[in-house]
Computed example of a mutant assay.
Amino acid sequence: MTAVIFGAHPWNDTPYGLHHIARALVKLGWNVVYVEPAFSPLHIISGRRRGRTFSKRLRSSGEPGISLISPFSLVPHANMPLLRSSMALKFSKLLWPALSKTLKETVFQSPDLVLCGSPSMIRAAINVQAKTSAYRLADDSRLFDVLTPAIRKEEQSCLSEFDAVLITSPKLKVTARNAGARKVVFVSNGVDVNYFQTKTAIPSDMPLQGPRILYAGAIETWFDWNVIINSASSRPQYQYVIVGKVAIKPEVDLPKNVFLLGQKPYSTMPGYMRAATVGIIPFASSESMDAVNAINPIKLYEYLAAGLPVVTSIPVPHVEDAAVIVYSSASTFSEKLDEAIELRHSGYHIAPPKECEWTSIVARMLQSLNL
């Protein structure tokens, strides 16, 4: 069985949902081509190629069963003056090499599955003659300023052309239906449990005194710096460790017990989690809280796999466990941390539900797509 996956992130980036789905497909006996988002002269000049390279043929990802295509576009489409126009979007679709030529005379010319999660590559995905096609709607697009009005419009207009739309949160069902989706399937995010249960070295920059409150992930506009700062001030005995790329910096100086470690290789995440006491997901937005609540954070499952209780602002209806502690207001965040630390020390067994293992999720996805 063969699949062509159109990802929204380069293969060598921090793993997102489609990276994990590709690896799970291989474990289930599939062969996969992962089509990276197109790169352009803008990416080359700014040093943001992130491993993408020119090639007329499929190239190896370095992992068995997964090949790569890195399309090049002379004209980028970006949320910048001139480049955000519908005309720029049109020209950005002129890709080298042409995907049809790269896939021709390979087992991927007519794949069993095309799975797209990239708004910018949605038309290219539709053009692949697959037995089954699906679009993965992972988040509410209102969260991402990088998406232009033109690309949002195209995504909405194209969803009806796929055999199915896969949603990661039940809250995205209305979005898919309003766009004319023929079939909507809930496919949750998940975790490779073994990856986070393997004992790895604890990174040297991880604080080791007192309870350690860990956030591991990108710091975007919906990251609630205020709740971190207020909690750190009220709980000076706790160490707040923030690991991830900072897109939005705090507006005030951080308390001394908040450690901003920056972006780290994904391979070090099990080590950071091994040394942590609690994992947190402190998200908030004054403008689009409904969009934030539609996030199904992969980090939730990773924390649980690492044995960490989770304090989160986002309810996840299909994961009901005493180790997932939801706070409803900033004023209760610290109290919930206290509760989580007590649970951690109680000996309560913490693990994600078995059905949240990526291979199980993908097997159910294939069944729902009749594959």
Rank of each mutant, 00 (worst) to 15 (best):
A24P: 08
T102M: 08
L172Q: 03
Y266L: 09
K101E: 14
R344H: 15
V324P: 00
R23T: 06
V187I: 13
P149I: 13
P255T: 05
E339N: 14
A78Q: 02
P353D: 04
A134E: 00
S267H: 11
P81L: 00
L143C: 06
V35A: 02
L147R: 01
S233I: 09
L343V: 04
I341S: 05
D192K: 09
F283A: 13
Y301N: 08
D224W: 02
S86R: 14
S55N: 15
R23M: 10
I280K: 03
G7Y: 00
H77M: 11
T106R: 05
W358M: 05
L103F: 07
S120L: 15
T359F: 10
Q263T: 06
A294M: 09
L89N: 11
P309I: 00
C356T: 10
R49C: 15
S233G: 04
V114H: 08
A176K: 07
V316W: 01
D139N: 01
I248N: 13
F108Q: 08
S70A: 10
H20N: 08
A201Q: 11
G7F: 01
H20C: 06
L166H: 02
V252M: 06
S110W: 14
C158S: 13
R212S: 04
A78K: 05
V174Q: 15
I281S: 10
T359K: 07
F108K: 03
Y303E: 01
A88H: 00
S61K: 04
N230C: 09
V319N: 07
L143G: 08
Q197Y: 04
A3M: 09
R123D: 15
F196S: 05
I202C: 07
S133N: 01
V278M: 07
A291K: 04
I295V: 13
D139W: 06
T332D: 14
V184P: 12
A291Y: 01
I66D: 00
E342M: 13
L74I: 14
A138P: 01
V362N: 05
T221H: 11
I248K: 10
D224A: 12
S70Y: 01
L300I: 04
R50V: 14
N230Q: 12
P10N: 03
V324F: 03
A201G: 14
S188V: 01
W225H: 10
A164H: 06
S73D: 09
S360Q: 12
S286F: 10
S313G: 09
T132K: 15
I314V: 11
K256L: 13
Y34C: 04
P211L: 04
M273P: 11
L28W: 07
D140F: 03
C116W: 03
V252Y: 11
G180N: 02
L115T: 03
A179K: 07
S285A: 12
E335N: 11
A247E: 12
Q129S: 15
D205S: 07
E161D: 15
G180E: 13
A351Y: 00
G347Y: 04
V324E: 00
A8N: 11
W96P: 00
S73H: 03
A284H: 15
Y238P: 09
A24W: 05
R344E: 08
P282M: 10
A125S: 12
S267G: 12
V191F: 10
M121H: 05
N257R: 03
P211I: 10
P64A: 08
L254F: 06
T198E: 15
A134T: 04
A134L: 02
A38H: 10
P255N: 11
R49N: 14
T198R: 14
D253N: 12
A351F: 02
R152S: 13
I229Q: 06
P76G: 05
V246A: 09
F223L: 04
